[in-house]
Design a protein around this nucleic acid. Structure first.
Length: 267
DNA sequence: AACCCGGGGGC
DNA sequence: GCCCCAGGGTT
């Protein structure tokens, strides 16, 4: 299949498989920023209700910047990878203080924001500003592996970038990537995804029995009410994971201890 | 380069 | 019970 046949096939899939999402109906940079942070390692179906709650609670990026971190963490609670809530809070404050409250439309400036890496920066440029930049994530990998690398054991992102660059629709990058996302998600749902073909693929450690499982329990508890240290410990698994998780959360600034009480960090 | 960071749904 | 999900930060 040559490049033109490929692009025609993708556009056909894009029409067939289009998924409606709140951040597709409104591509304001703030919508895209929030959705992309939430979508890191998290499925679309789980993000949509959290996204709507978040936007209802914090209608503008200034509302996030002004809010205590504890409020952002509470809204985030249940979505997972709670550090992202702190990253988003810090990014909102930085956009207000360093960028006049305007989310930047340049790659380097976006990369300077906490929680925004190469993928998220590229996604913001594509989806919000409609710029034809190359970025790689799991659905993009799935589509290109399926069509161009069937008989190759391992594929590097460098090889992938060349193909993406050759096939990207420079006139309609936003809709083009929407199509890649929808088609890639479709392929994986139907068992055609082979993400382990990527040289960057790493199997993640199980959650069960891990420290980060206890981190989640601590944050979930503190999202509801404050605890005395011993009171909280008694409600947690009785092993070393609790102490490790607690120290990490204190160090990272997600939680704070004042007067023998533990609570979500306010500032 | 290796490790850490949630929680849930699909299978 | 195992897997992965619109990845990024730290060491």
């Amino acid at each position: 299949m040559n490049a033109q046949e490929f692009t025609e096939a993708i556009w056909e899939k894009a029409l067939q498989l289009y998924r409606d999402m709140p951040w597709r109906d409104n591509t304001d940079p703030y919508y895209i920023l929030v959705s992309e942070l939430m979508l890191q390692q998290t499925q679309v179906d789980r993000v949509i209700p959290k996204f709507e709650l978040f936007m209802h609670t914090f209608p503008t990026i200034l509302d996030v910047a002004k809010a205590p971190l504890s409020d952002v963490l509470t809204v985030w609670s249940g979505l997972g990878y709670n550090r992202r809530a702190k990253f988003l809070h810090a990014t909102a404050k930085k956009v207000v203080s360093d960028f006049q409250g305007v989310i930047p439309d340049r790659y380097d400036a976006l990369l300077s924001l906490p929680g925004v890496g190469p993928n998220t920066a590229g996604a913001i440029l594509v989806y919000s500003f409609n710029q034809p930049v190359v970025f790689i994530e799991t659905n993009v990998r799935t589509v290109y592996f399926h069509h161009f690398f069937h008989d190759q054991a391992l594929v590097s992102d460098k090889e992938l970038k060349e193909l993406i660059e050759q096939t990207i629709d420079t006139e309609h990058p936003r809709e083009w990537y929407w199509g890649l996302m929808d088609y890639g998600a479709y392929l994986k749902k139907n068992g055609a995804g082979r993400i382990d073909k990527s040289r960057h693929y790493k199997k993640q450690a199980p959650l069960k029995g891990s420290v980060r499982e206890v981190r989640g329990l601590i944050l979930k508890a503190l999202s509801k009410e404050e605890y005395f240290f011993d009171e909280l410990r008694r409600s947690m698994p009785h092993d070393k994971r609790f102490e490790i998780a607690l120290q990490a959360l204190l160090k990272e600034g997600l939680i704070t201890q004042t007067d023998d009480r533990l609570h979500l960090t306010k500032t």
